[in-house]
Design a protein around this nucleic acid. Structure first.
Length: 936
RNA sequence: GGGCCUAUAGCUCAGUUGGUUAGAGCGCACCCCUGAUAAGGGUGAGGUGGCUGGUUCGACUCCAGCUAGGCCCA
């Protein structure tokens, strides 16, 4: 037989044919798919086929409209999209309305930087306009990027916190909370630049090296204190500070409750400070001669009263605080609630006043007595002098340390208490109500509830005011006559309506009288003049009302949401701000479930940072490999903990992707001549192996569905990937090749295989569509048009679980046969290594086995060669096994002998057959192949 | 410093109420095939279970401490 004839036989085979490319080329193909989705308006089409189905609402947490998306935001949106796509296919109407957080300090800051000097002269309204442009620019950029990920949603009608209606929502909710009595005003220290006379956010502070005074101050002890009461000398508690100018605002001295403190007697006085600081303090103050006369715990000193070192008529009380350290100072900390964050919290705990003797420009007020009018930094000297005179200053030097400074003018920043608005956690039991509501929510994973609980339990009142421009104003008026703040249903209604109509800009544009109803008078004093509040709301308040501004206002949505899906940092952020505004107004959470994911980190579990050089940019991944690779990476990872990404990890995901893609391609290629209308084979007519495959497929579908239902996507990823590798590629599809290629095109056995492949292709593209959004759509487009009931896989329904495909007995039988196949392949490998065979078709296999297994194998003896992909399989008794055989160590009493195949190689199907040569027309072929060609 | 969380083969993940030699797929090595071909098949080698103690007849699994890392506070 010459080469030409061999070629001819190849052409008689039914080899796969398809245009479905092996090489994915996703960076090019995905944009085409996006265009297709845009052309058919997929999102709208999904809405229309979902109409009337039960709702499943995943409410989007708004990312900040600044910068490009990063790996974390990409993962978040992909996770949400997987859920929404799955729920949609699973029979829900699941509209997804993405949102953006558009107000806030970072945008304001960036616009200010761009403006440079002009920032000082521009009007507030013009400035806000620039901020809006900035935010909208990034909304556009991020929209494009999210869409590129394959995330489907109402992208051209998203919710934006800067939209008029949304801004008005803040007013409504604020009004409700105010009405309930939860809103109050109180002084709280904030970062303040006395040169620019403005409040600063944390991000606007730079740390610079500064030189400050470093002094010890003696606070005269007024109370009787048991451990030292037998001594007549004057007694002092010694504190250390680097900010003498904050002493006028001192109200307390904080000590650590568990630390040891000592009283020492020296030169006619008793000094009290931490034992751990004894040597250092003694050295620094030059006390050579002293005697420790008492030792006690910090807790013993609680509530002792001292005389204020600057104002003898005032008192300073000893309080306990865990943050008091013993590495520096004296272990006794000067506490001024108006000048420090920790001091402030301690003040709240002890119900201390928070005097603020410093004005906006950094000058002492008359509250500071003899220091009134002095600039605070300069006052340091005067205060030190005064303390020296009173002999209350045993130590006085300078220290260089890093100190917070203003990003703009580089001058030191001070903490200064100013009036702020708060939402109380406890006035009307908001905290208790929130904790109760938390218990009614499903938190995934389950540790999530512990986290939110402990945070809500321990959180301070919510400070909702900011001294800023780019945001929603706090809708409060002050009476020009009685100074009372005025918030009534009437005022709220007028502000609400104004914002709906003209947006929050109107607040800055119009006078109080223009905003209020005509002739409005103060409910308290009937005054007619009003002043507007200048503070704006915390952006967390704004995003926290999205359930009101979005879920309750958009007809396609519902309140409460079925689920919120965000990173674990949102326990402090959005989960909580949403909870508080919702509980505050509606007495329940705005969500039924909350799903939390971890952060994206590098392969070593470290956070991504420029300095570590481990940043993976999702846009680069899309450009190089495609969004489906990113989506598969998300699905392959356990997102309940931190998720690692690296070029190496993405390479592995790419390998997995190719295996899945090629499996699709094989199925598609073998269906080129299959018409489901006419060629389908009834279940009862299928071969047993086909039924086994359908059974396995159905089991897989069960597993996969359960994984999606429990949001365990990596579980489904592993199940599918293992299935594609073990059950399909290495088993079913490999065995099927002979049947598909060599059987007569229209034969029952070939059509049976195609029937199964066709069924599988639909099920597998369907179950993977929520993850491989692009690839499954592409594969779907290769299905015969007649059976594609929908234009897009994303419009199709979740694969139907056909219980009729389940046949446990049959599956058990075949699992056993296939297990023996596994043993045979070990024996074949030994023969291959011994150069006895190459291709397994060159082998003939003898199985030596007893009992039930023997009966089973004999029952299927004629099919075994095909199953093992060898030329023949014979079964005999175990004792009949020759001496030199492969003995299984997995299956008892199983011996396998591998021999060269009998007969000759069929030039068409490559099997070795005794029947080769029997046909007069086709001398090189086996009986089966000859029959196929002659049509016998 | 505090709260919550994580730590199983190179990678991604499983590991049932503590109980025989800790599993899977990928990757890797070697081999086969060249009719899924920048594919496909087979076999095999990889783990002192972050570390240190403790409880127990027995711990990857329970307890304590430590180390490394993450989020949020301070």
């Amino acid at each position: 037989m010459n080469e030409q004839a061999k070629q001819d036989y190849k052409s008689t085979l039914n080899l796969p044919q398809t245009e479905f490319p092996m090489k994915a080329n996703l960076p090019q193909r995905e944009p085409e798919m996006l265009k297709f989705w845009a052309d058919i308006d997929l999102y709208k089409a999904i809405r229309s086929v979902s109409k009337g189905k039960p709702k499943f609402i995943l409410h989007d947490g708004p990312p900040y409209a600044n910068g490009d998306i990063h790996a974390g935001t990409a993962m978040n949106k992909i996770l949400k999209d997987i859920i929404v796509k799955y729920k949609t296919m699973a029979g829900f109407d699941s509209p997804y309305v993405p949102g953006w957080d558009c107000h806030g300090q970072p945008i304001e800051h960036n616009v200010e930087k761009q403006l440079g000097e002009k920032a000082k002269t521009i009007s507030q309204v013009d400035f806000r306009k620039l901020c809006q442009d900035y935010a909208m620019r990034y909304v556009d950029i991020q929209r494009e990027q999210f869409m590129r990920l394959g995330v489907s949603g109402d992208w051209f009608d998203p919710y934006l916190t800067l939209k008029h209606e949304y801004e008005a929502t803040n007013v409504k909710t604020f009004g409700e909370l105010y009405k309930r009595g939860l809103v109050y005003k109180r002084r709280k220290p904030i970062h303040w630049c006395v040169k620019d006379q403005t409040a600063l956010a944390e991000a606007e502070i730079e740390y610079r090296d500064e030189v400050s005074p470093s002094i010890y101050v003696k606070f005269p002890l007024k109370s009787e204190f048991e451990p030292v009461k037998t001594f007549d000398e004057p007694k002092f508690i010694v504190i250390w500070t680097t900010t003498p100018w904050t002493l006028p605002a001192n109200v307390a001295v904080a000590v650590h409750p568990e630390a040891d403190y000592v009283a020492i007697r020296t030169a006619g006085e008793i000094l009290i400070f931490a034992e751990a600081r004894l040597e250092v303090v003694a050295t620094e103050t030059g006390i050579a001669d002293y005697e420790v006369v008492a030792k006690f715990k910090g807790a013993d000193m609680e509530f002792l009263k001292c005389e204020h070192p600057l104002f003898s008529e005032k008192e300073s009380v000893v309080v306990l605080a865990d943050y008091v350290g013993l590495d520096t100072g004296t272990g006794a900390v000067h506490t001024a609630p108006g000048h420090g964050q920790e001091d402030y919290l301690t003040g709240l705990k002890y119900d201390l006043p928070a005097p603020m003797p410093v004005d906006a420009a950094g000058h002492f007020t008359k509250e500071a007595g003899q220091f009134a009018g002095m600039y605070i930094i300069k006052a340091n000297k005067a205060i030190i002098e005064y303390l020296k005179e009173k002999n209350l200053l045993p130590y006085d030097t300078e220290i260089a340390h890093s100190y917070p400074c203003c990003w703009r003018c580089k001058n030191p920043v001070v903490f200064r208490a100013t009036e702020q608005w708060f939402i109380s956690m406890d006035i009307d039991d908001l905290r208790k109500e929130a904790l109760k509501s938390i218990a009614d929510v499903r938190w995934i994973p389950d540790w999530s509830i512990r986290r939110i609980n402990s945070m809500v339990e321990g959180r301070p009142d919510w400070c909702i005011s900011r001294q800023r421009s780019w945001g929603v104003p706090i809708p409060v008026f002050y009476c020009g006559d009685c100074q009372e703040d005025v918030v009534t249903e009437e005022t709220i209604k007028s502000v609400f309506e104004l914002f709906v109509k003209d947006g929050a800009d109107a607040w800055f544009d119009k006078s109080a009288e223009e905003i209020l109803p005509q002739g409005y008078t103060c409910p308290k004093c009937s005054g007619k003049k009003f002043v507007k509040e200048t503070d704006i709301l915390d952006v967390w308040f704004e995003s926290g009302v999205s359930h009101e501004g979005v879920l309750k206002t958009r007809e396609e949505l519902k309140w409460p949401a079925d689920i919120y899906v965000e990173g674990s940092d949102q326990h402090r952020g959005w989960f909580q701000s949403s909870l508080m505004t919702s509980v505050g107004v509606y007495h329940r959470a705005p969500y039924d479930a909350v799903l939390t994911h971890g952060f994206v980190v590098d392969k070593d579990g470290r956070k991504m940072s420029k300095s570590l050089g481990n940043v993976v940019n999702p846009l680069d991944v899309i450009e190089k490999s495609g969004a489906d690779i990113l989506r598969l990476w998300v699905a392959s990872s356990d997102y309940t903990v931190d998720v690692a990404i690296s070029p190496d990890i993405l390479k592995h995901v790419g390998d997995a992707y190719r295996r899945i893609r090629n499996t699709f391609r094989f199925m598609i290629g073998n269906l080129f001549d299959y018409d489901p209308e006419t060629d389908a084979v009834a279940y009862d007519e299928l071969l047993e192996l086909d039924k086994w495959a359908l059974h396995q497929m159905t089991q897989l579908l069960k597993t996969v569905t359960a994984s999606y239902e429990s949001y365990r996507f990596h579980g489904m990823y592993h199940a599918v990937y293992n299935f594609f590798t073990n059950e399909l590629s290495s088993l079913y599809l490999d065995i099927l090749k002979d049947r598909l290629y060599a059987s007569a095109a229209g034969s029952r056995e070939r059509r049976a295989a195609q029937t199964v492949l066709f069924e599988m292709l639909q099920v597998y593209t369907g179950m993977l569509a929520p993850v491989l959004a692009f690839t499954c759509e592409e594969a779907w487009s290769y299905l015969p048009e007649a059976v594609r009931k929908t234009r897009s896989v994303h419009l199709s329904e979740w694969p139907v679980l056909n219980e009729g495909y389940l046949d446990a007995e049959l599956a058990a039988r075949w699992d056993k046969i296939l297990k023996i196949r596994g043993e045979a392949s070990k024996a074949l490998e030994e023969a291959r290594n011994a150069k006895l065979i190459g291709n397994s078709l060159e082998a003939r296999v003898e199985l030596y086995v007893d009992g039930a297994t023997k009966e089973l194998l004999e029952r299927y003896e004629s099919q075994l060669a095909q199953m093992f992909i060898v030329s023949s399989v014979e079964v005999d008794r175990f004792e009949a096994a020759p001496a030199e055989v492969f003995k299984s160590d997995v299956i008892e009493a199983l011996a396998i002998k591998v021999l060269p195949a009998r007969g000759s190689k069929c030039e068409r199907c490559w099997r070795y057959e005794d029947t080769v040569g029997e046909s007069s027309q086709h001398k090189g072929l086996c009986a089966r192949c000859a029959g196929v060609l002659t049509g016998a």
